[in-house]
């Protein structure tokens, strides 16, 4: 079953398209990373999926229903971000009780153990928490609610390294025990790479790439060698990224569609093939220029 289906999804704010004909589907019980640079519409997309805002055009289905103003999708979806608003009059432990009353799959024991582990004072108030602590608390709500669709929008904002690691570990463990569809949005794949199954790469409000993480690792390859030789191999290929290494050596990333013969020929010409890390690939793909920041300095 597809939990999320988007077809030509468009969202415009003041006539400017933030999402521009986005099309993708996400299957049940998969952990998908929603990757893109800041401001490409990740947050807009997750808000549409959570039913907070309405698409301008195109089709969106969550649990085969239209999410905007939909009680069913609201009950089965939770959107965790650093702007989750909690009533200032309630203490943390009361917030857990409120969440319990709303979410049918809520695991109070887990919530309380996490609260204790991250040493929260249950009698504190949400708005007194620091940014990182807010993210941590929101994440506890997100995990314990066990919603069939759990959306985490930049969940680790402000968290320190140790908490970040704990958080992803907790997410992984809880996912294994209680599989559900999880969508994590982040602007860098790096830290979430290990727990993802799929990656959905967004650029300019469109789907750039939707691959499994293992495919993504083999999706591209880097060629490194003498500039002239490498340039020859780049002809008729779409170069994703290139960088001058040393005086006459070029590093270029292209889609890995080389045949075995191609590779042997290239190797003979002194070209080295280097695998590209998925996180690097995502950075290259989402860059607007082929050379990255170097382009700014080279004319």
């Amino acid at each position: 079953m597809n939990v999320i289906e988007c077809n030509g999804l468009t969202k415009a704010y003041f006539r400017k398209n933030v999402l521009n004909g986005l099309t993708f589907t996400i299957e049940e019980n998969k952990i998908t990373g929603l990757i893109g640079r800041n401001g490409v519409g990740k947050t807009t997309l997750v808000k549409i999926l959570a039913g907070l805002i309405k698409e301008t055009s195109g089709e969106v289905r969550v649990f085969e229903q239209h999410p905007f103003n939909n009680l069913y999708t609201s009950a089965n979806t939770i959107l965790v971000d650093d702007q989750m608003f909690f009533p200032p009059a309630l203490q943390l432990h009361e917030l857990l009780e409120v969440a319990q009353s709303f979410y049918p799959n809520w695991d109070m024991e887990l919530a309380q153990r996490l609260l204790q582990y991250f040493s929260f004072d249950p009698s504190h108030y949400h708005q007194t928490l620091s940014k990182g602590r807010t993210s941590t608390f929101n994440m506890i709500i997100g995990l314990a609610s066990r919603c069939s669709l759990t959306i985490l929008d930049e969940p680790t904002t402000g968290m320190d390294e140790a908490v970040r690691k704990d958080f992803y570990r907790a997410l992984m463990k809880d996912y294994l025990a209680h599989p559900r569809t999880i969508l994590i949005s982040s602007h860098h794949l790096n830290e979430i790479e290990d727990i993802l199954e799929d990656v959905l790469l967004i650029k300019n409000g469109k789907t750039l790439l939707h691959e499994s993480i293992s495919d993504l690792k083999e999706w591209a390859i880097a060629l490194q060698g003498a500039s002239t030789v490498v340039q020859k191999w780049l002809v008729e290929r779409n170069c994703i990224f290139q960088r001058q290494v040393g005086k006459d050596t070029l590093y270029a990333v292209v889609r890995d569609d080389f045949t075995k013969e191609n590779k042997e020929e290239a190797l003979r010409g002194g070209v080295e093939f280097i695998p590209v890390k998925a996180s690097d690939l995502c950075v290259y793909l989402t860059n607007d220029t082929k050379g990255g920041i170097d382009d700014v300095f080279e004319r």
């Binding site: 103003n69 939909n70 009680l71 609201s74």
Partner: peptide, 16 residues
């Protein structure tokens, strides 16, 4: 806004 938003932290639609 803050009051409407806290509804949407939990399960709701506009009608409820």
């Amino acid at each position: 806004k803050p009051y409407r938003n806290q509804d949407f932290t939990f399960v709701t639609n506009r009608m409820s």
